[in-house]
């Protein structure tokens, strides 16, 4: 049961929050016009976005170094969907629908079921 639960798995939740912020930056950049293909990639939002993603990845390495299993890490990372919903609302005013809420409730339930056994 929970006695084997590794608290370092929470690093993956933090990592996915950082990754969600990076997605916001990438989406912002992708929806803006650019003068050239190079500019599509070489702009501050894309660079910052992928920089944040690297920080998130390093947090995952740290988690794995603390004996978090790959299955536990990936399941915890799925909480990123919740972060994306919240941040999409904040940055793009995307509506928080009942379906999104239900889906995220399922994700949380799945994470709990996974970590209980």
């Amino acid at each position: 049961m929970l006695n084997k639960w590794n608290p370092w798995v929470l690093l993956f939740a933090l990592s996915s929050l950082i990754a969600a912020f990076s997605q916001m930056l990438l989406k912002k950049s992708a929806s803006e016009p650019h003068s050239s293909v190079i500019r599509e990639y070489m702009n501050i939002k894309v660079i910052a976005g992928y920089g944040l993603m690297v920080v998130g990845m390093l947090l995952c390495v740290l988690g794995y170094a603390r004996n978090v299993s790959m299955q536990s890490g990936s399941v915890m990372e799925s909480i990123g969907n919740l972060w994306v919903m919240l941040l999409s609302f904040l940055f793009f005013r995307e509506p928080v629908t009942k379906r999104k809420l239900a889906g995220n409730a399922l994700i949380i339930a799945g994470i709990i079921v996974f970590n209980l056994f």
């Binding site: 299955q71 379906r99 239900a102 889906g103 995220n104 994700i107 799945g110 079921v113 996974f114 056994f117």
Partner: peptide, 30 residues
């Protein structure tokens, strides 16, 4: 995780993964 790191396949954990997957699909079907 199973093929490379030989992590165990526990049925209840798999159920957790499937629930998470259903949740992600529900979110994205919106």
């Amino acid at each position: 995780s199973v093929l490379i790191f030989h992590e165990p396949v526990k049925p209840l954990r798999l159920i957790g993964i499937i629930i998470v997957f259903c949740g992600i699909m529900t979110v994205n079907s919106d």
